[in-house]
Design a protein around this nucleic acid. Structure first.
Lengths: 219, 219
DNA sequence: GTACATCAAATCGTATACGATCAGTGTGCG
DNA sequence: CGCACACTGATCGTATACGATTTGATGTAC
């Protein structure tokens, strides 16, 4: 028995938020979830508080928890944070990347390119997530790695509200990925790699901001 | 009654860790803390889990919690994370900085310079913290701001082993602060400000690493 | 003397119970 | 007719109780 009940509760609620079963604003009642899980409210409570700390749910004392509402400001803030952290994680990870890792990343990006031909945006998004994870997963700094993963989780949670639909960025993304891979393959300096990764992320963020009629991010 | 008991417990334990009353490795027993607070273990448990999420305590299932051990690796990771985030926070905050804020920051740095003359390292460290907080506190992105504050809290918790060991950095710090202030005053680009702030932090980190006989940080 | 099984104390994990707090609703008064 | 206030149902916050797990020690066999 490796899992405590509070971990089970955490996994369940977390999963449902990320895959959209609980949409933003949905009210999370401790008693109801506990009943569904066949346990008492105590472990559920702990799970909810953990989710609150990650920003996936909003919690008000004596009132209860709801799945975090997504608005463009929240998206901006999350994406901006990721724009700072993920490139750093990638740059740190680059040193630890061997041929096998690079090969896998290259395959993922090639598959993304294929998705462009096939007009398959769902697969494209999935591959995009996997590609980025492949790049930063070797980051030797666990704090930074953790922050990046949290950021992506939050983005995944708000994917349901179709914030990430910026189709005309897809082709440029693939090219920017390719450039990044070539820098890593050539053992470019960490700063160059970080710079390229940040440009990639900032471009995506600004494409969204532009579409929403907002000013571009200063970072 | 604005504070719940779990918040009180959180504040108490947190305070004791940061000010050193609970030193690293100290065993945090739920029942004992609950008794001291005059409440049951449930709120204490929640507080401990929150502290775990922040990295201030280490928690093992069915065993218990201890104050996080500090080693040079942990210091490196925390400092490296801060080296990525804090400069970004400062750059974002720069746009929102008015004259009053700049003036206050200048006063703090001048006071630090005075501490150099007076050989007052304790006051110097306190002013240093305040100076940095002054810089990033106006950051309009609450996620980034939160991450920076958590980083500083962790450093505070391990302060015993950090800043006091690299006194020769103090004078350079003041000069780097001054440079940063001048960039902000001149409305330099966010990237320039970020670059200067990162150089400042990386220099401090590398001074520590060098002294510890470790290789400099790649970021 | 060492290795292993067994046991007991300490501590955590969770269930249940009850008091506290809040949002919504209805009623009385202005 | 509108506002203020008390009431009510739902839900959270915490106390208490007990079972589950770990750890370290003790005893026994080899």
């Amino acid at each position: 028995m490796s899992n405590s009940k509070s971990e089970v509760a955490y996994a369940l609620v977390s999963e449902r938020i990320v895959n959209g079963a609980y949409s933003p604003g949905y009210r999370l009642v401790l008693g109801t979830i506990a009943e569904e899980l066949g346990c008492s409210v105590v472990p559920v409570r702990e799970a909810i508080r953990r989710l609150e700390a990650e920003g996936l749910v909003h919690f008000t004392r004596n009132v209860g928890a709801t799945v975090a509402q997504v608005d463009s400001t929240l998206y901006l803030h999350t994406m901006q944070t990721l724009a700072v952290i993920e490139p750093a994680a990638t740059a740190l990870a680059a040193a630890a990347m061997d041929e096998a890792w690079l090969k896998r990343a290259q395959e993922l990006n090639d598959a993304m390119r294929q998705c462009l031909e096939d007009f398959n945006p769902v697969a494209f998004t999935a591959l995009n997530n996997e590609f980025h994870q492949q790049l930063y997963s070797q980051c030797p700094n666990p704090h930074i790695l953790d922050l990046v993963q949290r950021g992506w989780r939050r983005l995944a949670a708000m994917r349901a509200s179709s914030f990430t639909h910026i189709p005309h960025r897809a082709r440029a993304s693939v090219e920017e990925h390719q450039h990044l891979l070539e820098l890593i393959r050539a053992h470019a300096s960490p700063r160059e790699i970080e710079e390229a990764a940040r440009t990639h992320r900032t471009n995506t963020l600004n494409a969204y901001l532009d579409q929403a009629g907002m000013a571009p991010s200063v970072i």
